[in-house]
Design a protein around this nucleic acid. Structure first.
Ligand SMILES: [Mn+2]
Ligand SMILES: [Mn+2]
Ligand SMILES: [Zn+2]
Ligand SMILES: [Zn+2]
Lengths: 134, 134
DNA sequence: TCATAATTTATACTTATTACAATTATGTAA
DNA sequence: TTACATAATTGTAATAAGTATAAATTATGA
């Protein structure tokens, strides 16, 4: 099932802009901010509006086709990897990478509460940056 | 060791405003935003400035006397509980409560990276709100 | 007391996100 | 094809959290 079909299956009419934003997220697993998506796509779509990017992201998140990732307080990032996982952000290079954690722990919490979102973010310095420090 | 002594021990001269903000956080374990702290303390300190609250919070966080908690993307919260833990935010009543998780998992991540901050937040509906639904 | 430094305050600024209205594209009935 | 209704996109203005700056106040200590 390609990206276009996924949108249709979720009741989203696959406009050009929507397809571009969704495809961008599925192709580039870099946890971009709305502005980065806007800025990168503007090269191919000069008429693109920032509002549209925000609208599409909210639409996709509402249908659970992407997830919002809150690491720093001044930037909301987006992720098309739906499998439950956390993130590691390197404060040196800024890269955000995936961290997968134990499902059993989440099940324990889920027994008592109705979970709708989990944010698990670790900030630090990654292996690469630590080694390149010498 | 009382709050005043803790500030002094950490090289922070214990001004009235600083002591009030720090005491507020230690007394009320509600993970307030900067604005809530400002708004609540203004009742006792009518001359209090929002900038001061932000300044004090940043000062305390810099000395690791409090922790920043990032749950929603539009509000930064603060916590005087320093033991490593995550949070559960109820989307019904808005309350933020503590969630303690396995230290071993964090150790595994720590072997490879230098961790400076961990944010573990769960959003959902709490036991109370689930039961009061009928 | 007086000078100096530290702290607080008020104000203006920045910036991510949202609200809103105007414009454009799309699909369908006549 | 044309006209119309609806959906989607765009540009602009508004909102609001957080930050920067400088003036005003307060504390310190010679
Ligand atoms: Mn991810
Ligand atoms: Mn807590
Ligand atoms: Zn790095
Ligand atoms: Zn609740």
């Amino acid at each position: 099932m390609n990206n276009k079909e996924i949108l249709i299956k979720n009741g989203i009419s696959p406009s050009f802009q929507r397809l571009q934003v969704y495809s961008y997220l599925r192709k580039n697993n870099v946890h971009p901010t709305a502005f980065k998506i806007y800025n990168d796509l503007k090269k191919q779509i000069p008429t693109l509006s920032k509002t549209t990017v925000y609208n599409v992201l909210k639409l996709l998140a509402g249908k659970n086709l992407i997830r919002e990732v809150k690491i720093e307080d001044n930037e909301l990032r987006f992720d098309a990897v739906l499998q439950e996982h956390g993130h590691f952000k390197c404060s040196e290079c800024g890269k955000v990478t995936d961290v997968f954690y134990d499902k059993e722990f989440v099940d324990f919490i889920e027994k008592r509460n109705k979970i709708t979102d989990i944010q698990f973010n670790i900030i630090g310095i990654c292996e690469n940056c630590l080694n390149n420090k010498n």
